[in-house]
């Protein structure tokens, strides 16, 4: 990584961590609903800087948000790792899809993978087993439109970052 890339990754880490904490503080109409702006920053890193940068942004953001929110090492942190990792892997693979997906489609896949990764973690770590599937329909059905929205935010930001 060049110094320039490291600086950009650090900037995106700061933005992602801030958004992750902000989102955890905002009251939501439905308790489990989350726009996923922190993951959107990982997607922006993937769009502008590639898979390694997206990995760095996700990993450091998850660690920092865990540290700042006091969840580090606990069950909430395990879910953040599971969701973040699932979304990242899914988005990196989706970005290589043929026929090509736009960044909106990549975002939708990342959003759905985030939900499924978290459910898998609840099933595997907390003894819920396949009962987690009863939670899946609503989570997945909302993940798709939310993925489109966060993807659109990423594309809009990407267009305004010409100077990068």
């Amino acid at each position: 990584m060049t110094t320039r890339t490291i600086a950009r990754v650090a900037l995106l880490v700061a933005v992602a961590t801030t958004l992750a904490i902000a989102e955890s503080l905002i009251p939501k109409p439905l308790p489990w609903l989350r726009l996923g702006l922190a993951n959107a920053v990982a997607l922006l890193a993937l769009v502008r800087l590639g898979a390694r940068a997206a990995l760095a942004v996700t990993a450091v953001r998850v660690l920092l948000a865990g540290l700042l929110l006091g969840t580090l090492g606990g069950p909430t942190f395990a879910l953040a790792v599971a969701g973040g990792a699932a979304a990242l892997v899914a988005m990196v693979l989706a970005a290589r899809a043929v026929p090509p997906l736009s960044w909106l489609g990549v975002s939708v896949i990342g959003s759905a993978a985030h939900v499924l990764g978290q459910l898998a973690a609840i099933g595997a770590l907390f003894g819920a087993g396949r009962s987690v599937l009863t939670l899946a329909p609503w989570l997945l059905a909302t993940a798709v439109p939310l993925g489109v929205v966060t993807g659109a935010i990423v594309v809009a930001v990407d267009r305004r970052l010409e100077a990068w």
Partner: peptide, 15 residues
């Protein structure tokens, strides 16, 4: 309009 055919298929499949 911004969604490619593949985007739409993936989104529909997930729904």
């Amino acid at each position: 309009r911004a969604l490619t055919p593949a985007d739409r298929i993936v989104s529909l499949a997930l729904l």
